[in-house]
């Protein structure tokens, strides 16, 4: 198939950036979206132009590196699919495709489609863990956890930290990301000791990083490639309120 691509080009953080148009011919339907960009980049390089910078690594939908807004939707049109797992059979000959970086104040553009997501790391650093040192933990089976609880925790823990939730949200809120970690650890007995402090610290960091608040658009849930439920946000809000009551 032949495609017309409109891609955000920005040489660095201080550049204003602009959309540029590229025609790409003979794209196979079996290619992944990123392989299609690889082909474009090979052609650009051979012409002496600079290739489009984009993050990617595992190309299996699990590392969370890749992320771009494709035709207005983070990771593109398919539900529960990262950009690297999106295949060109989703598109048809003659399509025009618009490709842009995540747009959020807390995710400054580094170059082209690459953004700086270190704000996510700082949210985790402020409480997204169980404070346990290595060594001499008790036997794993001494702490029974019902299958239901383990499955629920795993639903939240499946987050890959890609940032699509932020890109999809009209407020650039990181509440789905933050609540997924709070929900994962808060649902397990191991996470109880720090449950409320964790919620409070992570929410405060999230705010300080410049992410917006949630106004119930549910765009994050729709965009999440791992299908994480916005219910975790409600749970986080409860824990945050409890923290306020307990820590007063």
């Amino acid at each position: 198939m032949n495609l017309r691509l409109h891609i955000w080009r920005q040489s660095g953080p201080t550049d204003t950036g602009m959309m540029k148009t590229y025609d790409l011919a003979d794209v196979s339907e079996h290619m992944s979206f990123l392989e299609m960009l690889d082909v474009l980049n090979e052609q650009l390089s051979e012409r002496g132009e600079e290739p489009v910078a984009f993050e990617h690594d595992c190309r299996e939908g699990i590392c969370g590196s890749c992320g771009m807004v494709i035709n207005g939707r983070p990771h593109g049109p398919l539900p529960r699919t990262t950009a690297c797992q999106l295949h060109m059979r989703t598109f048809k000959d003659g399509d025009e495709i618009y490709i842009e970086p995540w747009r959020a104040r807390a995710f400054p553009v580094v170059r082209d489609l690459v953004v700086d997501r270190s704000s996510f790391d700082r949210i985790i650093q402020s409480g997204g863990f169980v404070s346990v040192n290595t060594g001499n933990a008790q036997d794993g089976n001494t702490l029974p956890i019902s299958k239901k609880d383990a499955d629920y925790a795993m639903d939240a823990a499946a987050c890959i930290g890609c940032g699509a939730c932020v890109a999809a949200c009209p407020n650039s809120s990181a509440m789905l990301f933050t609540s997924a970690k709070i929900g994962h650890l808060g649902a397990l007995p191991q996470g109880q000791a720090e449950r409320y402090d964790r919620a409070e610290n992570m929410v405060l960091t999230m705010d300080a990083e410049g992410f917006g608040a949630c106004t119930n658009h549910y765009e994050c849930e729709a965009a999440c490639p791992k299908g994480i439920s916005a219910d975790f946000i409600a749970r986080m809000n409860r824990d945050f309120v409890m923290a306020g009551l307990l820590n007063r």
Binding site: F129, V130, V132, T134, G135, A137, Q138, D139, G140, L143, A150, A153, M154, A157, H184, L185, L188, Q190, G191
Partner: peptide, 10 residues
């Protein structure tokens, strides 16, 4: 044991 203590959802 260590991973369970960290909250890995096995």
């Amino acid at each position: 044991d260590q991973c369970v203590a960290q909250g890995v959802p096995f």
